[in-house]
Design a binder for these strands. Structure first.
Lengths: 259, 259
DNA sequence: TCACAGAGTATCGCTTTGCAATATGCGCGT
DNA sequence: ACGCGCATATTGCAAAGCGATACTCTGTGA
């Protein structure tokens, strides 16, 4: 079996192929998280069936996969344990949790904390208020940096060359028909975010939703995440939403910044 | 390197040692989730330093570990992605999410969904209402089945012998000075849960907290989880809490049961 | 009824992958 | 200066993991 080309920055002798394949198996459920037969796992993870069997049995034994009711294997509860460890390891999440709860109560809208991660941003805290679509309630969801108010709020605090690099590497597919995907349009939004200290998006990720986000910066003024407030266009005009709620998001994000 | 004794139910030739060791590394952060040097990882995971280096580099390359600001390695955001996949793979969580949000709004208290997992129960949905302790806001937290209202609500729906087996295998250490750890006491609570269709606990997991839970059953009437409502003893008398809120939890759990 | 496909499970000889031990450089504290 | 712990780098070897294959069972369609 031939080692793949070395992962950037890691000596290939230090890179464990079998561990990577096990991660491929877990990641194979990202495109479709429903239970899978070993054959399906093999196909989705790019393995042969023997490999899927061995990796599947190992992950099953450790609780990272579980048997599906109708046969096959599904993801296992141990993934929640690892996520719990992640959430409690992150001081920003711990500091933000009570503040965002206050913000949710004060605004009566959905409030999120996202973490900036290069070409995507990932939601770490999701606090529902009214009725939400299911995925909007789940920690761990990723959204492209270029298309999210929180992502653009963070990009606003990066040097232009770094922004250009991220945009160039981003797969700029639209999430809705309102998603801005052209670099000049996105740059316009980033300049606006630089001027306003927050960024907003209207129906770019979800039809009917207006959302604004203010960046959280670390001690070196580098963006590490964003505080989001999301509302419904059936209840808010865009201008009202921004006028009323942006100062609150900016205040919360500032209070979280710097440490 | 010698294979360990075979994991129950898995042929040792199908069990991948190196994958298991990588999981050991991730799990090493459970006892203390702060950043760790390679030496600390090695010690905590029971490995030598070379192994920690190879596994650490692999997990780093794949985003499951990240570099800590002060050096060392910490858990990485990819764990949230995997947890996201788990959450959206589970039909009960999807069905429960809007219902629990309604329940939170209706009660004005914290509402959770837990999943029954043998000697522990694990929280999958956490909906804060008032101020909560940080860990009480996090999905993925585990609590012993014997000591949680949700766990006991589930035990109430198991045959006696199965309950005895779980209790015998449980590490019955107290969470607070109010935690019931003696098997006869716990059985009393299980009998009460059988009579009431819900179980309650007072300060057994957290001082100052009163919580009740109703079991969610699958199509075969086997317990798979529980709906929890949690309040503060500074705001509720135990009797009022139970009288007012138990019927709501029982109703929600019943609506979730059976599918 | 029969053939086939796909599911899960089991096996084995071989070689490649991962291993343990070791070395090196750097920074910090005594 | 020295020791310690950190991160990084290296190497020969053998065992761990591999791919290919076989087997059994079940469900489906002709």
């Amino acid at each position: 079996m031939k080692k793949p080309s070395p992962i950037a920055g890691v000596d290939e002798r230090l890179f464990l192929q079998s561990v990577a394949r096990a991660l491929d198996v877990l990641e194979a459920f990202a495109q479709n998280p429903r239970p899978k037969s070993l054959g399906e796992i093999a196909t989705a993870a790019g393995l042969n069936k023997s490999a899927a069997q061995r990796i599947g049995q190992t992950l099953l034994a450790r609780g990272y996969l579980e048997k599906g009711e109708g046969g096959g294997l599904m993801l296992g509860k141990r993934l929640l344990d690892r996520s719990f460890d992640y959430l409690r390891s992150n001081p920003l999440i711990e500091r933000a949790t009570p503040m965002l709860n206050e913000l949710r109560k004060r605004t009566g809208e959905r409030v999120d904390l996202s973490l900036f991660d290069d070409t995507t941003t990932i939601y770490a805290i999701r606090l529902q208020s009214k009725r939400e679509t299911f995925y909007a309630t789940l920690p761990g969801r990723r959204i492209p940096t270029f298309a999210s108010s929180g992502g653009r709020a963070c990009l606003a605090h990066l040097p232009d060359a770094h922004v250009d690099d991220i945009l160039a590497r981003s797969e700029r597919v639209p999430l809705t028909r309102k998603t801005l995907t052209e670099i000049p349009q996105i740059w316009e939004k980033i300049r606006e975010a630089r001027a306003n200290a927050y960024s907003h998006a209207v129906e770019e990720a979800l039809i009917g939703e207006v959302v604004l986000a203010a960046p959280v910066l670390d001690m070196d003024r580098k963006p590490i995440g964003a505080v989001h407030i999301a509302g419904s266009l059936s209840e808010w005009s865009i201008d009202d939403f921004r006028q009323r709620l942006a100062p609150l998001a900016v205040e919360a994000a500032r209070a979280l910044s710097g440490a």
